[in-house]
């Protein structure tokens, strides 16, 4: 069983949803980023989603755009992202690591080589935002061969004609994008999310994680009542950005501040169903 499947099985056993924490690799600098991401699981993240910085992140709002820019400026690239995962994996055997990003850096690296290197580094899944089912065969083949789950996205615009195609080749879990919009902008409407997740479950038995527009523990808890996991990204990146000095360097309390938010979100997710 893959780490992702195992983790969702365990969450099901505990009768709760999980927290997926997103941070961009290398933000604000490689060392701080490594320390931060290494601390996510202990702070309560059940899955860790690591952003691969890209110059032109068309599905991201200003917060994650800026995170990617900081990382690139600090010298981050895809090879170093994989090296970071390799390092993290040595210290953590069980937490699923999912890489999220855009296709061009992967294509430049070579889909085959990338899938092999990512799997060897300890990556469990891939989310490639600009690779819809129509275009993902080129990566899906190598990913499957390497034992990686290619996670697919469903959105408020995915109608019932499209959903079978989306879930058909999906691996790991379905990532439901809670808003029609980019990251870090609108707040997700948790009632609409519950309806959308129920609809998705008619098409798939895969776990459903919900992200985009989840900003605080209450909202994460509300989502956790309907979905198998809540994904929080921009809110963490915002906390990170608030702990940078004028020159964009990490201030001393940055790691603790971000991990503090992760703890609060994890608590929200854990209590969600008992409070319901």
């Amino acid at each position: 069983m893959s780490r992702i499947a195992e983790r969702f099985a365990r969450l099901r056993g505990e009768g709760r949803a999980g927290l997926v924490a997103y941070l961009t690799a290398g933000d604000p600098d490689p060392d701080t980023s490594r320390e931060l991401i290494a601390g996510l699981a202990a702070a309560g993240a059940d899955l860790v989603e690591i952003g691969m910085p890209f110059s032109d992140p068309m599905a991201d709002g200003p917060l994650i755009q800026a995170a990617g820019q900081r990382a690139l400026k600090a010298g981050m690239n895809l090879r170093r992202t994989l090296a970071m995962v390799r390092h993290l994996r040595r210290r953590d055997e069980t937490t699923p690591f999912v890489l999220m990003g855009y296709y061009n850096p992967i294509y430049r690296y070579g889909p085959q080589a990338f899938a092999q290197d990512a799997a060897a580094a300890g990556v469990d899944g891939l989310i490639v935002v600009d690779l819809p089912p129509e275009e993902d065969a080129e990566l899906a083949g190598p990913a499957r061969a390497a034992g990686l789950d290619l996670v697919r996205l469903a959105t408020p615009t995915s109608d019932e004609r499209r959903l079978p195609q989306i879930v058909g080749g999906a691996g790991g879990f379905i990532y439901y994008v809670a808003i029609a919009g980019i990251t870090g902008t609108r707040r997700a409407d948790t009632d609409a999310v519950a309806i959308a997740v129920a609809r998705l479950r008619r098409f798939t038995t895969l776990p459903v994680a919900v992200g985009f527009g989840i900003k605080d523990p209450d909202q994460a808890a509300a989502v956790a009542r309907a979905a198998d996991a809540a994904v929080v990204g921009s809110a963490l990146v915002q906390r990170l950005a608030a702990n940078l000095d004028a020159g964009g360097r990490a201030r001393p309390g940055l790691v603790a501040a971000v991990l503090g938010d992760v703890q609060a979100l994890a608590a929200g997710v854990r209590w969600a169903r008992s409070r319901a």
């Binding site: 690779l131 408020p156 615009t157 499209r162 994008v177």
Partner: peptide, 20 residues
Amino acid sequence: AAGHFGIYGGRYVAETLMPL
């Protein structure tokens, strides 16, 4: 039919935009 000129072209957009 899928918008490819040889290996070029295609529809590399976020899922939200695919139906549009």
